[in-house]
């Protein structure tokens, strides 16, 4: 399962994001660079407003940087339009969000199947049920999100994140809306499946205990990357 281990799956170089409002401009991310080999796990931490979410959005191709480049699974996102980035996400990326982000009008199994259905793949129901059984929801396939508890919804989201066998999984505060016990179970599922499928993981969290489970940690403050445990010196990194 770890056949691609060692290759760089995500490379962010000199990422800067500036928001302009009339005459004023605000740099929310400044010259951040890092790379992530396949199968590795990375936690991004930092106080509110430090640019964590912006960095995640840029790395996942949800937004385009003002400066810098992102290469995801060997593809340069900078040269692509939104539909191109959507294709890359669909092929290589999985997502788990703090507030689950399930489609309320789809049942659990339908939610799980969406990424592959968008590719036009057929006969994916058995795989979707298998993943749901794996996260302990084998009895809840036909339930709508609102009929599930928060923990169950997040486990559906995890099953969905893995249905396309992604090379990279982005998780944004996956336990933020869950109680400690439920959060613990969800994290177990997440790491277990990540391990089993050899997926690289980028985790944004406030929870330092959770962050410590990742193999590597980078810390942001005021839009700057101030610490990267995987860089070998743990100090200020990537700023010019």
């Amino acid at each position: 399962m770890r056949g691609t281990e060692g290759q760089v799956i995500l490379a962010a170089e000199h990422l800067t994001k500036t928001y302009r409002s009339g005459e004023r401009s605000l740099d929310v991310l400044r010259d951040v660079s890092f790379s992530l080999p396949s199968g590795e796990t990375l936690a991004i931490v930092g106080p509110s407003g430090s640019g964590k979410t912006t960095l995640l959005g840029l790395c996942a191709g949800l937004d385009a940087p003002t400066q810098g480049t992102v290469r995801l699974a060997g593809e340069d996102l900078g040269g692509m339009d939104e539909d191109g980035r959507a294709r890359v996400r669909n092929l290589h990326v999985g997502f788990v969000f703090q507030s689950f982000q399930l489609i309320p009008t789809l049942t659990a199994i339908e939610n799980v199947m969406v990424p592959l259905e968008l590719r036009g793949e057929r006969g994916i129901e058995p795989e979707a049920s298998r993943l749901l059984r794996e996260v302990g929801l084998g009895e809840r396939l036909g339930h709508y999100p609102a009929q599930l508890s928060g923990g169950e919804q997040q486990r559906v989201a995890i099953a969905r994140a893995f249905i396309n066998r992604p090379k990279l999984l982005f998780a944004d505060e996956p336990t933020g809306n869950l109680d400690t016990e439920t959060g613990r179970k969800v994290v177990e599922s997440l790491f277990r499946m990540n391990e089993a499928m050899g997926t690289a993981l980028v985790l944004v969290t406030h929870d330092l205990e959770l962050a410590r489970r990742a193999g590597r940690l980078i810390r942001l403050r005021g839009g700057l990357l101030v610490e990267d445990s995987g860089s070998g010196h743990g100090g200020r990194m990537g700023t010019s």
């Binding site: 996942a60 949800l62 939104e82 539909d83 959507a86 294709r87 996400r89 669909n90 092929l91 990326v93 997502f95 982000q101 489609i103 009008t105 969406v114 990424p115 968008l118 590719r119 969905r160 396309n164």
Partner: peptide
């Protein structure tokens, strides 16, 4: 729903 589908890889 549209945003979510776009995140999951749906084209416009």
């Amino acid at each position: 729903e549209s945003i979510l589908l776009r995140v999951l890889g749906a084209s416009r």
